[in-house]
Computed example of a mutant assay.
Amino acid sequence: MPVEKMSWEEALDHCRVHHNDFGSVVSETENLLALSEVQAQGVDRVWIGLRYLVDRWLWVDGNPLEYEAWTMGGGQDQECPLWKRCGALTNEGLWENRDCQEELNFICY
């Protein structure tokens, strides 16, 4: 995981140029593996390859969104976000929707 922080789009470009792709967390096992990376870096949250497009949340690498680990209380902002259309993984192993322009650390695969 890079030390520098980037917007979601910048992180996506970085992952696709320097690695394979942006991190998708498609199972509880992958969520735990990603969480261990977050905790090892000592950060609060990292971008993952989750994006709200058209009318649903999608993984940018094409994986289906079958496993979910959203924070409690996301409500309408999570179900139909106006501004917070990019996904992040917290250091508690939960997903949040955040403003895509925010600069966070991120996970590439």
Rank of each mutant, 00 (worst) to 15 (best):
Trp57Asp: 01
Asn97Ile: 02
Arg56Gln: 09
Phe106Gly: 04
Ile107Glu: 02
Ala88Leu: 04
Leu89Trp: 00
Pro64Val: 09
Trp83Pro: 00
Cys80Arg: 15
Thr29Cys: 03
Glu66Met: 13
Met1Gly: 12
Leu32Val: 07
Leu82Ile: 10
Leu12Pro: 01
Asp44His: 06
Ala88Gln: 00
Gly49Pro: 01
Asp21Lys: 08
Asp13Ser: 09
Thr90Glu: 04
Glu103Trp: 01
Gln76Glu: 11
Ile107Cys: 05
Gln39Ile: 13
Asn31Thr: 02
Cys80Val: 02
Gly42Asp: 11
Pro81Gly: 05
Leu82Asp: 03
Gly73Val: 08
Leu82Tyr: 07
Ala11Gly: 11
Glu102Tyr: 04
Val3Lys: 15
Leu50Ser: 03
Glu102Leu: 13
Arg85Ile: 04
Thr71Phe: 14
Glu4Ala: 14
Ala40Val: 00
Asp21Tyr: 04
Gly93Val: 11
Trp59Arg: 05
Tyr52Arg: 02
Trp57Glu: 01
His14Met: 05
Arg85His: 02
Asn105Phe: 05
Glu66His: 14
Asp13Val: 11
Gln78Lys: 05
Asn105Ile: 03
Met72Thr: 09
Glu79Met: 13
Val60Thr: 12
Gly42Lys: 03
Thr29Gln: 11
Ile107His: 04
Ser24Arg: 12
Gly87Trp: 09
Thr29Gly: 04
Leu94Thr: 08
Ala69Tyr: 11
Leu32Tyr: 02
Glu37Trp: 12
Arg98Cys: 09
Ser24Phe: 07
Val3Ser: 15
Leu94Met: 13
Asp55His: 05
Trp47Ser: 06
Gly75Ala: 14
Gly42Tyr: 08
Asn97Thr: 05
Asp13Ala: 12
Ala34Pro: 07
Cys15Tyr: 00
Met6Ile: 03
Leu32Ala: 14
Arg51Trp: 01
Trp57Phe: 04
Gln41Pro: 05
Leu50Gly: 01
Glu9Tyr: 13
Ser27Thr: 13
Asp44Arg: 03
Glu9His: 11
Glu92Lys: 05
Gly73Asn: 12
Pro64Gln: 08
Leu50Lys: 03
Gln39Ala: 03
Gln39Val: 15
Leu32Gly: 05
Ala40Cys: 05
Val3Asp: 15
Gln41Phe: 08
Val46Lys: 13
Trp47Gln: 04
Thr71Pro: 01
Glu4Met: 09
Pro81Phe: 06
Asp13Gly: 06
His18Thr: 11
Asp61Gly: 10
Leu33His: 09
Cys80Lys: 15
Gln41Met: 15
Arg16Glu: 13
Asn63Arg: 15
Ile48Leu: 10
Ala11Trp: 02
Cys100Trp: 02
Ser7Cys: 04
Asn105Tyr: 02
Leu12Ile: 06
Gly42Thr: 05
Asp21Arg: 06
Gly23Gln: 13
Ala40Tyr: 13
